[in-house]
């Protein structure tokens, strides 16, 4: 069988814009695994693809939106979440997913993140956390661990990183999970869960960046990094997100938050319905 035909036989082929493959990501980059898990989640949920919108910001992972064969939009750096907010409120029938990076979502876009979580807008955020700005060549960002080497921390990073699951939980997200790219099955299950839940969700995906961050920090090959993930990951569902800081010798993974709370869209629709009822009464 010709390779092109074989590509089409891949169980996830119909979810990819084949003409744009191969993607731009480096050998061993976790972004491809994240994309794979997301598509498998979509597949298993048998989602109506006409109703899915994928939005991304700018960065290596920001290209994900362009590879997925649904309605998709590649916004400016940091602005995927407010764009997605507009989409979701304007058409509540759509399922809106944001796939973006640690820098995009938590540095330049950090304010949008906490406010969307606070409002509980029904969007699902999947963050590829590779601990740095990959696209611009490996500068430090809001999740870079203390002491790490990047092109703009030539003497080691002296900034304290965000603990993303804690930030999301404190901001009001109804579903918060963290996995590494090694736990593909559980990652996929969390993505499925987020897709089915109403409200603001964060799935953090700790992801190798073998070409840049991992290389500067002498973490070895992509396989080494994945093995390291395996070694130090501890699955603890319901663990206190405040205590789940990512450390060199320990990454707590699992579901941290899974609660129910009316979404912004629901409250908005209820309010609008009340206003409409009142107006009808006035007639």
């Amino acid at each position: 069988m010709k390779e092109a035909d074989l590509m089409l036989k891949h169980p996830l082929a119909k979810y990819l814009r084949q003409e744009r493959m191969p993607h731009i990501w480096c050998e061993g980059c976790g972004n491809g695994i994240l994309l794979n898990s997301f598509l498998e989640g979509l597949d298993e949920l048998k989602q109506n693809l006409d109703r899915i919108v994928v939005v991304s910001g700018i960065g290596c992972i920001g290209r994900a939106a362009g590879y997925i064969n649904v309605d998709s939009f590649h916004t400016t750096h940091g602005r995927a979440i407010p764009f997605a907010t507009g989409v979701k409120l304007a058409n509540p029938n759509l399922k809106v997913v944001v796939i973006s990076g640690d820098g995009d979502l938590f540095a330049i876009g950090g304010n949008h993140f906490i406010h969307a979580a606070r409002r509980n807008v029904d969007i699902k955020v999947i963050c590829a956390n590779n601990f740095n700005y990959g696209m611009t060549g490996g500068q430090y960002g809001p999740t870079t661990p203390l002491g790490s080497w990047t092109t703009t921390t030539p003497y080691g990073n002296i900034e304290h990183p965000f603990n993303l699951v804690h930030l999301a939980a404190a901001s009001g997200a109804v579903y918060v999970a963290r996995w590494t790219t090694l736990q593909v099955r559980r990652l996929k299950n969390s993505i499925k869960k987020a897709l089915q839940k109403e409200g603001f969700s964060l799935v953090e995906v700790i992801s190798p960046c073998p070409e840049i961050f991992d290389r500067y920090n002498k973490l070895g090959t992509a396989v080494d990094v994945m093995k390291w993930f395996k070694l130090i990951s501890q699955v603890k569902h319901g663990y206190d997100p405040a205590k789940a800081e990512v450390a060199k010798n320990k990454i707590i993974v699992g579901e941290f938050v899974d609660i129910e709370k009316p979404s912004y869209g629901r409250l908005l629709r209820e309010m609008t319905a009340n206003v409409q009822d009142k107006l009808k009464g006035e007639k």
Binding site: F83, G86, A90, L268, T272
Partner: peptide, 26 residues
């Protein structure tokens, strides 16, 4: 709400214009 439209007060004007672009595409 009287015309079944949506008002959303965003966290800043960057968010406001981004949401408006999103709504337009929706």
């Amino acid at each position: 709400p009287e015309v079944e439209g949506i008002y959303v007060q965003m966290e800043d004007e960057i968010g406001a214009i981004a949401a408006v672009i999103g709504a337009s595409y929706a």
